[in-house]
Design a protein around this nucleic acid. Structure first.
Length: 719
DNA sequence: TGAGCGTACGCCCCG
DNA sequence: CGTACGCTCA
């Protein structure tokens, strides 16, 4: 066998062979952390004769888990589908699927996503008679979810929200339990509950997982930390890898303090520092270092590599957002001619919605691409409709799916009928399906028939699940439910139907993979997969430009990276600029983005862009200014801004004229002075407190308060 | 009951 | 600019 350690440097080797006891590896960006993790797993198996079933590796994203599985398989030849290499959430799902009956749930529980949670909470609020305009379901949801991790936080909420949240929390929990549903928080919380209340089980798992590895440790939250503590056995063979500079998930509860907690809880830990970077040129690393050093409260760390200086970083500023996108597209085509592959490129943005502009232009220019994120296959309406059918078939208690399915497609059963049915079911202590049998006690004859027809339809589907092949089963549901027919009147119907056929393929694939399970179990596993991997794109493109958020780019690397929409308000986001904590997280996000690039890095933005259908003008992102000029090559807007237009050859006259008009429109002078009273289209009346450069500070009345704005912004008018 | 239309509102990142 | 929701009318 080839020596596993041959390709590692001294520090990396140390991180691999120190297999016993707690180990903390601080791994800078690009320091070969994934190699260390995979080699360590291989080393445990081959050198320490540890059985692969006794290893647990936890990653943060599905993508990272897949990558690790692939690499472990590559180095060890082991069939990694049997190994516990997974995200926290899928690990929990796996444990709960086996043992959740101990907590009173049924094994066929279904996992719901964030949108479902919002809908459920909204429904509860409405039913309780709360005005959802005042008690925004999303706000209530965020409180409710926080309470799941720590109920004491209820005391921090102020009235009248406090009582609303309190009652909604209770009702929400009950409704999840009654419907046999779990949200993402439940996956963690219930696993902890299971391990804490069932000592046999805890003993079993902590004995089973003799070696635990946790990737991206800086992004774990308190609950995940607790979960790890419960699983770690007596020998404390816990290996964690992290980098505080890449902590970008505080918004969902990640707690950097966990690093200190680890130091306290495992005082005899061994520390390894991985600082040498194997990814990027020194120009890129210098820029990254210059940016991140502006953050307070960090252990100073400087990345270096021996990959040479490399090319300068390009800052391109377009006149409009369209120009920005065109530049990226043309630059990609230019580099393709020089021998780069589409796979070498990544376009990274702060918000998923940015992808649309790129999609348009890439389609037009026939640049192959793949988008990771939001508009994922499994979040499409038709797919959610169809999975609701499947969920109801395996889990008839699921009132949530029931409500979706019974009105999709419309079958003459409306809100009034359903309200009556729900109330009746609640009064009589029945579930909805049983309530249908007694519906004649409260409802007219014709609706009762419709309800009974619906119930029979679902029961029939349940029977057909065992009788038909999955392929036929899908067709059967689509036709018999009337869903296929309802698509005929939908102008996107064709696309939706094709998406559903795609789904058919996925089902058939699973039929082969899990051939030893019952059809029902296959369906349960499949639905679980869908909930946990909702971010996965539907089809793989062999060679294509990657479009993704900065968040999902963590852990990945590309030869050429474009960081786009580099403007104040876009990145860093407006909302983050209120608090230092949030702002520094944005900076870490920038650091993550920059360090994804191996050879070439482009920072792009535009002078004007459309947001919410309005033209807005933002300054360059402050993060660009944190990079010293000698590393930057500035192109676009700044080059020609003072020159006659004919000298500019990059832009078409059309875009230029439009931009010119936009510019003129934007450049109307408000002529503000300190002490002026103004009216803002959004914030109402205010008083100008001060003026500095292009900006001014205006005090608006409650709830807007003091804002820093562009003094000539069209939204402002002098009174 | 539900199709069709007009209005309001959105503010982000993930499993 | 989009979409989601609510209101009106058939």
């Amino acid at each position: 066998m080839i020596n596993l350690l041959d390709n590692l440097n001294e520090k990396q080797r140390e991180a691999v062979i120190k297999t016993e006891g707690p180990v903390m590896a601080i791994a800078g960006a690009g320091s070969g952390k994934t190699s260390v993790l995979t080699t360590r797993i291989a080393y445990l198996i081959f050198e320490k004769n540890v059985h692969y079933e006794n290893i647990l590796a936890i990653t943060f994203t599905n993508k990272a888990a897949n990558e690790m599985k692939y690499r472990v398989h590559h180095t060890t030849g082991i069939n990694t589908s049997q190994m516990w290499i997974s995200t926290f959430h899928s690990m929990c799902a796996k444990i709960l699927r086996e043992h959740i009956e101990f907590l009173g749930y049924k094994r066929s529980f279904q996992i719901i996503d964030d949108d479902d949670v919002t809908q459920l909470i909204k429904g509860i609020l409405k039913k309780s008679g709360y005005d959802v305009k005042i008690y925004n379901p999303k706000v209530v949801k965020s409180y409710v979810l926080k309470l799941k991790f720590n109920y004491d936080l209820l005391e921090d909420i102020e009235e009248p929200f406090k009582s609303v949240v309190k009652s909604t929390f209770k009702k929400y929990q009950d409704s999840l339990f009654d419907n046999n549903l779990l949200d993402f928080e439940d996956l963690l919380v219930l696993t902890i509950k299971l391990l804490e209340t069932n000592h046999e089980l805890r003993k079993f798992y902590s004995k089973k997982f003799q070696y635990i590895l946790v990737d991206e440790f800086q992004d774990t939250n308190n609950v995940q930390y607790k979960l790890i503590s419960l699983l770690v056995g007596e020998k404390n063979n816990l290996f964690i890898v992290g980098d505080e500079d890449q902590s970008i998930y505080a918004f969902r509860g990640a707690n950097i303090e966990n690093i200190n907690k680890f130091k306290r809880d495992y005082p005899d830990f061994h520390l390894v520092l991985l600082e040498e970077n194997y990814r990027s040129t020194n120009t890129i690393l210098d820029a990254a270092n210059q940016i991140i050093k502006n953050n307070s409260k960090r252990v100073p760390k400087t990345l270096f590599s021996n990959l040479g200086k490399g090319s300068k970083i390009t800052h391109f500023k377009g006149v409009t957002a369209r120009d920005e996108v065109e530049f990226v597209a043309l630059k990609i085509l230019e580099l393709i001619r020089k021998g780069y592959k589409y796979n070498d490129f990544a376009i990274l943005y702060r918000a998923n919605s940015t992808s649309r502009m790129f999609e348009e232009v890439f389609m037009q220019k026939q640049i192959p691409y793949r988008i990771y994120g939001n508009t994922s296959f499994f979040k499409r309406r038709e797919i959610k409709d169809f999975t609701a059918y499947l969920r109801l078939i395996v889990n008839m208690d699921d009132a949530y799916s029931f409500m979706r399915v019974i009105t999709t497609p419309k079958r003459g059963i409306g809100a009034v009928t359903l309200d009556k049915l729900i109330n009746f079911a609640a009064e009589e202590g029945l579930d909805l399906m049983d309530a249908i049998d007694r519906a004649s006690e409260i409802l007219g004859k014709s609706v009762c028939t419709k309800l009974a027809d619906f119930k029979n339809l679902i029961i029939d589907f349940r029977i057909k699940l065992d009788e038909l092949s999955f392929n036929d089963f899908v067709d059967y549901i689509l036709n018999e439910s009337g869903y296929a027919k309802s698509l005929e009147n939908d102008d996107k119907g064709m696309v939706r139907y094709e998406n559903l056929l795609e789904f058919k393929t996925i089902l058939s694939e699973n039929e082969q993979i899990y051939s030893d399970l019952t059809k029902e179990d296959i369906l349960v596993y499949l639905l679980e997969d869908i909930s946990l991997k909702s971010e996965e794109s539907q089809k793989e493109i062999k060679d294509g430009v990657t479009l993704m958020t900065l968040h999902s780019a963590k852990g990945l690397e590309f030869r050429v990276v474009f960081l786009v929409t580099m403007e104040m308000g876009m990145f860093p986001l407006n909302r983050s600029m209120q608090s230092k904590k949030d702002f520094e997280e944005e900076r870490r996000l920038m650091y993550v983005g920059v360090t994804r690039a191996k050879e070439l890095l482009f920072l792009t933005n535009a002078n004007v862009r459309q947001t919410y259908g309005e033209t807005s003008q933002n300054q360059d992102s402050c993060f660009i200014k944190e990079i010293s000029n000698n590393l930057l090559n500035v192109k676009g807007y700044y080059e020609y801004i003072d020159k006659p237009y004919k000298e500019v050859n990059f832009f078409s006259n059309k875009t230029l004229n439009k931009a010119k008009k936009d510019n003129l429109r934007n450049y109307k002078k408000n002529n503000l002075n300190k002490g002026d009273k103004v009216t803002h289209t959004k914030f109402g009346t205010g008083l100008v407190i001060s003026i500095t450069g292009d900006n001014c500070i205006i005090a608006f009345s409650h709830p807007y308060g003091i804002k820093k704005l562009l003094k000539d912004h069209p939204a402002i008018t002098k009174n």
